[in-house]
């Protein structure tokens, strides 16, 4: 009598168990896949609402002239730096490369452009070799002092060389932000130095959605 009851109970538990497990798995998948998409994206950079498209510029790369407007339809990550810079510039370029790797195929819709704030030391060939060390799709551009200054100022990029007693000769202070221009050509996002690859990737991925 007792044996029969035990058998009945355990067999009904045995039948329910897979169903309970299945429901648990579905709920966990829902929480993992769907809930994060319902929450609005928290940008790691600073979002700008630009009424006008970003001012265009044309500077020189190793493969000829490059204008910002050439990349309408893609996200442009615009950075002002210089090859003599040993710390912040390589860290930033490497982080952007890692961020693009996280985006997979979508990285094809992102163009990284580094403008040299040290045109005296960075010629187009040197710049190309420099940026392509970090990622073969990166573009490096430069120009005359006036051309570079005119390209930089509308983005709020200030830079200035300061003389150095040591072996450097001079170093260049520069605003080291990543400036993200959206597919329509508007400056949309400014990402500060040291933000890190994961955070950059999250913002770019959201802008590419």
């Amino acid at each position: 009598m007792t044996d029969t009851q035990e058998t009945v109970r355990s067999s009904s538990v045995g039948r329910l168990l897979p169903i309970v497990l299945a429901i648990t798995v579905v709920l966990a998948l829902f929480a993992w896949l769907v809930l994060p998409r319902l929450r609005p994206h928290q940008f790691n950079g600073t979002v700008l609402q630009s009424a006008m498209p970003a001012p265009d510029f044309t500077l020189t790369s190793a493969d000829g002239p490059v204008s910002l407007s050439d990349y309408r339809g893609k996200l442009v990550v615009l950075y002002f730096g210089y090859t003599f810079c040993p710390d912040v510039c390589p860290t930033t370029l490497s982080d952007v490369n890692k961020a693009l790797a996280q985006l997979g195929n979508k990285a094809e819709d992102v163009q990284m452009i580094m403008v040299s704030v040290d045109p005296a030391r960075d010629d187009p060939a040197k710049l190309a070799e420099y940026v392509q060390f970090f990622n073969p799709t990166f573009i490096g551009v430069t120009g005359t002092d006036d051309e570079v200054r005119s390209a930089a100022t509308p983005f709020g990029i200030w830079y200035e060389a300061h003389a150095e007693e040591g072996a450097s000769g001079y170093l260049v202070d520069h605003v080291a932000t990543l400036n993200v221009i959206d597919r329509e050509g508007h400056l949309k996002l400014v990402i500060g130095p040291g933000t890190g690859a994961d955070a950059i990737a999250a913002d770019l991925e959201y802008m590419l959605r």
């Binding site: 040993p86 710390d87 912040v88 202070d173």
Partner: peptide, 21 residues
């Protein structure tokens, strides 16, 4: 290295990165 120097990168109050000995 042709020369090795002790340097420090820092951000100034305008948000510019600067590097100094």
């Amino acid at each position: 290295c042709g020369a090795a120097e002790l340097h420090e990168s820092s951000m100034d109050d305008q948000g510019a990165m600067t590097m100094q000995p």
